[in-house]
Write a protein that binds this DNA or RNA. Structure first.
Lengths: 224, 224
DNA sequence: TCCATTCTGTGAACGAATTCACAAGGGCCT
DNA sequence: AGGCCCTTGTGAATTCGTTCACAGAATGGA
């Protein structure tokens, strides 16, 4: 039983219940919109407006939020900064996450140089690669480590999340060692199924599969 | 009514029926496994084995495939090269798709240098950016074009699919022009909802949202 | 040839997620 | 203060996707 403090609106009794992946993804999207409109000086948003900007329905927005509490005012809508702050807390974004980049190739380096992660509280504290020519090179404020020290680096840097951008064939070995290093969150770019213990969460980014899904869609409607 | 020729096993009557996004994503994954095991010399695979390697269930595999035809042999399983070829056709991968990269920043250049797309039949035939300093530079075998010529380039190169890696604020304008350029498939990396006509298909890759979903998952189980 | 074994293909059952529809709360104007 | 309008929060209904369970096809062995 968790004993952590939540804000008044949060429903402790429901927090542990099945929240679907799609709900979480939408929450993340709602938060983005709230931050954007908040910056633009808007202070209230209805479920309808939120739905329109995120490509869903007003009922869906209200249902998603209702899983965590009552954050709106009937007749009025949602207070933008307040709801944003609730969502940040729900999503666990009221802290910094320590991220290691495992794989320093094309994708890995693009993610590193792309500042978008750090701005949202994901700090890259280590980069690892198997290529001896890369080991020791300086990436921004971190020195690239040899992947043979993986477990040690993960523990020394208290890494929470690993971003895996290694070739498929290297996955089984590296994955075991990531888990052994105590990491319980993995963002996986390799086009293989990661087999992990149940206390480890994996999210996949499969760009080629998305392209193939586009190919399918175009083939369906195309030809005329 | 489509009049195109399909192989014997394909069910013309069902091809247009609702195939869910999850089914398509799995088909793409099955294909990968088939190609990998085919290269390893395996010539037959059961739904059970396919399921294990893709992280789903045997029933799911059979159901997915049954939406398009009967490709297996009872008591035996699926012939690897044959099923791979069927899936390639179903997914529309029996041709080359012409892709334009719109946005030549971090992500865009990483995707360009990453060879994984071309190997699967997605050929990058144009790269466009708004930065005058980049226009005219040579990327592999293409010259980077000014985004002000967007529609013209898309038409001249017969672009099928656009990969959008531009900042969120540039999206509304560029998106309209992508659609005006006749493109009906978009792989979107910008963290905004794309509003497009119904004959245009969009697939999103939202890496930061995936990270936030990880943050949520870790917050749920963490703390003890 | 016949039986035992294996694994597919698929209706039916189930469960999860979305949408509907409306009662109740809140603000504003007169 | 009262009435009107607006928008939330949420059970109920519906739709969609997954899992179950088994009949039927293919193979190999006796």
């Amino acid at each position: 039983m968790p004993e952590r403090a939540f804000t008044a609106g949060l429903r402790l009794d429901r927090v542990r219940l099945n929240i679907s992946e799609s709900t979480v993804r939408r929450l993340s999207f709602y938060l983005r919109i709230l931050e954007k409109t908040g910056d633009a000086g808007v202070d209230t948003l209805s479920s309808e407006e939120l739905a329109e900007r995120t490509g869903t329905t007003a009922a869906q927005v209200r249902k998603d939020l209702s899983l965590f509490g009552s954050f709106g005012k009937r007749g009025l809508g949602y207070a933008v900064p307040q709801l944003a702050s609730e969502l940040r807390e729900i999503l666990g974004l009221d802290r910094t996450w320590r991220v290691a980049l495992v794989g320093g190739g094309r994708i890995g380096s693009a993610l590193f140089e792309y500042g978008g992660f750090r701005h949202r509280g994901f700090e890259i504290v280590a980069v690892l690669d198997a290529d001896p020519a890369k080991v020791g090179t300086i990436w921004g404020d971190v020195v690239l480590s040899d992947i043979s020290n993986l477990e040690a680096v993960l523990r020394a840097e208290s890494v929470d999340i690993v971003v895996l951008t290694i070739p498929a064939e290297a996955v089984p070995d590296v994955l075991d060692r990531v888990v052994a290093g105590g990491v319980r969150g993995i963002l996986n770019f390799a086009p293989v199924q990661l087999r992990v213990p149940s206390d480890v969460t994996v999210k996949d980014v499969h760009m080629v599969m998305e392209l193939e899904a586009l190919s399918f869609a175009l083939s369906q409607t195309g030809g005329e």
